[in-house]
């Protein structure tokens, strides 16, 4: 009772300190997460950029991006260490008479590039997303525009929620059992499409429903009062205004489709394939061919070949390209969605 006090003296210092420490801990948790994520991102971007970029023009390693994978051969020649891809090595052996029996260490997939993987991933994503959008948006239209709350609709919603929680490897097994074996599609692009599409379906439905719900009821009422049918109302007074929202949120689904490995492991992905997807004889072959894919390639090069200075380039390079693709898509989706949410306050 010594210091002169008035009614609003601050609380005791110790208590305030304790509070500050606790809040600081919460804050530390937040930044620890960001730091960890940022660390992984930076490490891969930094080490991968050495593969993907180069010092001289065009500054981008076009060989890596636009050619097929090859084995890398490392050997001593005339006192120097040489590294060559498959084709170059063969040519070299023919050119140099003494080189025929040179002992080279070989590392698969470590030379050349990843073009077939990039192409395969783009194809997989495009097809799967088209399917998922078609089914998902229709499904959301039904749930938000037609359905009346009832037992059945609750059941459907429950199914959607549960579908979202099914592990991706289970989708892989399912796709394998249904499309690859039962339908006899074998390991193919189309089996991958369906498997991935079913996997992102809940994401697309949820996103689309959110976007549809954001369209004010007044517009629907206005259209109906003017004598529009249900479908005309949806087509002219709901969907056009929900579409931007549907698309931006669904981009996040793209990131998910592109990022998953497990579902395509046994349904669509080949370890290696020497032809590009569009080099097919008949059009149907296009659907029924397996493809290489970036995520699967990363898995292959990081688990099936040794880690060393020669293999590191392709490992980090592939991870870089893949991470960057997915990250760009995700970032675009997040930014667009936040902008849209801010704008669409009707």
């Amino acid at each position: 009772m010594s210091a002169p006090t008035h009614r609003f003296t601050p609380r005791s210092g110790a208590r305030r300190l304790r509070e500050a420490v606790v809040v600081a801990l919460f804050r530390a948790a937040t930044y620890a997460v960001l730091l960890a994520g940022g660390g992984v991102f930076a490490d891969i971007l930094y080490k991968g950029s050495r593969t993907v970029f180069q010092a001289e023009a065009p500054f981008i390693n076009t060989t890596f991006l636009f050619s097929s994978p090859e084995s890398l051969h490392v050997f001593e020649w005339e006192g120097r260490r040489r590294e060559m891809g498959d084709r170059e090595f063969r040519a070299f052996r023919e050119r140099e008479p003494g080189a025929a029996d040179v002992r080279a260490e070989s590392f698969v997939y470590s030379a050349g590039g990843i073009w077939p993987c990039i192409a395969g991933t783009l194809l997989l994503v495009a097809g799967a997303m088209s399917l998922a959008l078609a089914v998902g948006v229709s499904s959301a239209v039904y749930l938000s525009e037609y359905a009346r709350d009832g037992r059945f609709i609750r059941f459907v919603r429950l199914a959607i929620l549960n579908l979202a929680g099914v592990p991706s490897i289970v989708f892989g097994l399912f796709g394998f059992g249904m499309f690859v074996i039962f339908f006899g599609w074998n390991v193919s692009l189309i089996a991958g499409w369906f498997t991935l599409a079913f996997m992102v379906l809940p994401v697309v439905i949820t996103a689309s429903e959110e976007a549809l719900k954001a369209v004010p009821q007044g517009l629907r009422a206005a259209a109906l009062a003017l004598g529009a049918t249900r479908w005309q109302t949806i087509r002219t007074a709901v969907l056009p205004y929900a579409l931007p929202g549907i698309l931006t949120s669904s981009i996040l689904g793209i990131a998910r489709v592109a990022g998953e490995t497990a579902p395509i492991m046994f349904t669509a992905a080949y370890v290696v394939r020497d032809r590009l997807p569009w080099e097919v004889e008949r059009a149907v072959d296009f659907l029924f061919q397996g493809v290489m894919a970036l995520p699967y390639h990363i898995y292959v090069v990081s688990s099936k070949i040794p880690q060393n200075e020669y293999t590191e380039r392709v490992q980090y390079g592939t991870a870089f390209v893949f991470l960057l693709l997915v990250a760009l898509v995700a970032a675009a989706s997040i930014l667009l969605r936040n902008r849209l949410r801010a704008r669409l306050r009707w």
């Binding site: 937040t30 997460v33 960001l34 992984v40 990022g259 998953e260 990081s302 991470l323 997040i334």
Partner: peptide, 24 residues
């Protein structure tokens, strides 16, 4: 800043994280 950043982390492909685990 923080919310989108953490959401962004969720888009990291798991195979890339797995590779990071092996490599680093």
């Amino acid at each position: 800043v923080v919310k989108p950043a953490i959401e962004f982390i969720s888009a990291f492909p798991s195979v890339v994280l797995g590779f990071f685990g092996i490599a680093v």
